[in-house]
């Protein structure tokens, strides 16, 4: 019998899991909107340069916790942290010496509804740098290209950088918002249901992007789509009624969750 031709298949390198390090520690965190408590005793350690997904039914506190990570909740009247702390690199971000403005430069955010500013694409990307007073044209040009490439948008918009960002499609707008966030070089990017208003193709592109970005950034994503959490995240936290129910590797959460509530939720049989 003749030996057949070797099978021409490239064996991909095994996925680099590498050593993980904790970047954000949430300890016994409690949070209220006025009299209504939204989070109860949340304990969570988030890995650097990984994607962590927060899942759970509406009103379970996942978005609240996300917004606590860059203190966006400061802007809402009557919010109280009643117990516990959040540390980033060991620093209590609600401590008296921490400036929320500086924190937000390190912990960027992408919102549910894509919110490009009604300025040109170029101005959108450099907004954060303009605020910080970066004025050098060549440096700005360089950052715009780098950020747009990072957000996988460069090829689509490089010929119309000075057209309005509002004229882009929904998926492009959301990637523009991601480019804008990474232009200020944050360490952590918070994403609040970034694909909820996008069609499947645009969603797939954003997911590709998240997968690429985790090489350089720690990403925390709130999502209502279980499949999205399963696809993009390395770890998943399931919240219910303001409490953290289960936190584990995404594969464990989706294949063999320890908690029956988690199982009911991820298999779409809740309540």
């Amino acid at each position: 019998m003749e030996p057949s031709a070797p099978l021409a298949i490239r064996v991909p390198a095994p996925r680099d899991v590498g050593a993980t390090s904790t970047i954000i520690e949430i300890e016994d965190f409690n949070f209220s909107y006025g009299a209504k408590q939204a989070l109860f005793d949340v304990n969570l350690k988030l890995d650097a340069r990984r994607v962590t997904a927060f899942i759970g039914p509406s009103g379970c506190g996942k978005t609240t916790l996300l917004r606590c990570l860059n203190r966006m909740n400061d802007l809402i009247d009557g919010t109280v942290i009643n117990g516990g702390r959040i540390r980033i690199h060991g620093v209590d971000i609600n401590g008296p010496e921490v400036d929320a403005i500086e924190l937000r430069k390190r912990v960027g955010m992408v919102f549910q509804k894509s919110n490009p500013f009604p300025k040109s694409i170029y101005e959108n990307v450099i907004y954060g740098l303009r605020i910080q007073g970066v004025g050098s044209k060549s440096r700005l040009d360089e950052i715009v290209e780098k950020s747009l490439r990072g957000a996988a948008l460069w090829d689509e918009v490089k010929d119309r950088l000075h057209e309005s960002g509002v004229g882009l499609s929904g998926g492009q707008q959301q990637r523009l918002c991601i480019a804008r966030a990474i232009a200020v070089q944050p360490e952590v990017i918070l994403m609040d249901e970034p694909c909820s208003a996008l069609d499947p193709i645009a969603t797939a592109k954003v997911e590709e992007l998240i997968h690429d970005l985790k090489k350089d950034y720690t990403i925390i994503i709130v999502t209502h789509s279980m499949q999205q959490a399963a696809r993009v995240s390395d770890k998943t936290a399931f919240f219910y009624l303001g409490r953290l129910v289960e936190y584990d590797d995404t594969q464990t959460i989706f294949m063999n969750p320890a908690n029956p509530q988690t199982e009911a939720y991820v298999s779409g049989r809740f309540g």
Partner: peptide, 17 residues
């Protein structure tokens, strides 16, 4: 839109900016 304010603040802008 609220998004203009939040988007700007999330990029590290002060309230006045």
């Amino acid at each position: 839109p609220k998004g203009f304010r939040e988007g700007s603040l999330a990029l590290g802008a002060t309230k006045w900016q």
